[in-house]
């Protein structure tokens, strides 16, 4: 550090006379080596990027891109990335944030939710190169990474379009015997916990989180452990997309540690978990029974299925975390 300082001073002294104006007149030294600013990867809770309450980190191994690749995100050491290791209390904080965001998000008009989701797609599109690079660094081949990011953006557009249409498709007027008619109206359930699949790390997260929030729920998502960095990058897209803070919260860490408090938390009313570990799936189902959560556990699909527009998205995905309210109304009185 000291050495560097000496060097700069000498350079300035050689170029210009010492005077008070030197600093302003100093020509821009394009040759000067610069220390790039490394990004601290953080979890996304309540619209802010936070470290784990526990202060713990875990390391994720990455690959350096090929020499001829265009690098958009200059990470000094892409081969080892420090990611916050979320704890039980991070789950608690995230659930509280999601709970507090619920009222405002539900009250927004469907059209406004649609606009916000579309805005998310816009932001993802503008940061496409960065998202692709992050996937490549996590070990996804170039072509597959581009495909995954494009599918993710399309998925955001898909749910943006659906945000003000699912209601008409799921609501109904029902014939009943007697002098009544009834309406069935879909309503959001509340705070939903999402455990995203390990792979595809971006498309899997996007495909599980977006239908949940499209329906007016808020969510606490647990990102893929093998590639949490892409999830954090995606959180940065959400942060700049007009999405109110707390609607989507993204935690990083180990599912074994974070799933039990999420499943036991009585404020969480539904869980969508994509896990290979059968014991963990079972544990989530058991813990979730305490407050009769709607627990959906799945064995993760293969990547082709996630990319498939008939399997990886759809009205059914939104419907899974909606409750139907039926209102009876007298007629002919």
């Amino acid at each position: 550090m000291a050495e560097k300082k000496v060097r700069t001073e000498t350079a300035t002294a050689d170029a210009l006379p010492r005077s008070a104006e030197t600093a302003l007149l100093k020509p821009w030294d394009t040759q000067k080596p610069r220390v790039s600013v490394a990004k601290a990867y953080k979890m996304f809770v309540n619209g802010a990027f936070v470290r784990s309450e526990s202060g713990r980190y875990f390391q994720v191994k990455g690959q350096k891109e090929k020499d001829d690749a265009v690098v958009v995100d200059v990470d000094p050491d892409p081969e080892t990335v420090n990611i916050p290791r979320g704890s039980r209390k991070d789950v608690r904080d995230a659930v509280l944030a999601a709970k507090n965001a619920l009222g405002g998000w539900q009250k927004r008009t469907a059209f406004n939710r649609s606009q916000i989701l579309y805005r998310l797609a816009e932001v993802m599109e503008s940061r496409k190169a960065e998202l692709v690079q992050s996937l490549v660094r996590s070990g996804v081949p170039d072509v597959a990474a581009v495909r995954e990011v494009e599918a993710s953006i399309d998925r955001a557009v898909f749910y943006a379009g659906f945000a003000d249409k699912y209601f008409s498709l799921l609501a109904s007027q029902n014939p009943v015997a007697g002098p009544h008619f009834t309406f069935s109206i879909p309503e959001p359930m509340g705070v939903i916990g999402v455990v995203a699949p390990e792979r595809p790390s971006l498309l899997g997260l996007v495909s599980t989180v977006l239908p949940v929030v499209t329906g007016g729920n808020t969510c606490v998502a647990l990102a893929s452990t093998t590639d949490p960095r892409t999830a954090i990058l995606w959180s940065e897209c959400i942060a700049t997309s007009d999405m109110p803070g707390g609607v989507v919260n993204v935690l990083t860490g180990f599912p074994k540690e974070l799933c039990p408090p999420l499943a036991k938390h009585r404020e969480v009313i539904g869980i969508d978990a994509w896990l290979v570990d059968a014991d963990l799936r079972k544990a989530i189902e058991t813990d979730g029974a305490d407050n009769v959560k709607r627990v959906k556990t799945h064995v993760p699909m293969d990547i082709e299925a996630w990319l498939d527009e008939r399997k990886g998205q759809g009205l059914g995905w939104i419907e899974r975390f909606l409750e139907t309210k039926t209102v009876w109304h007298p007629v002919g009185v």
């Binding site: 709970k99 036991k264 404020e267 813990d287």
Partner: peptide, 9 residues
């Protein structure tokens, strides 16, 4: 109980 509670309860 060991589990976080819901305010609605």
């Amino acid at each position: 109980t060991g589990s976080y509670q819901a305010s609605d309860d």
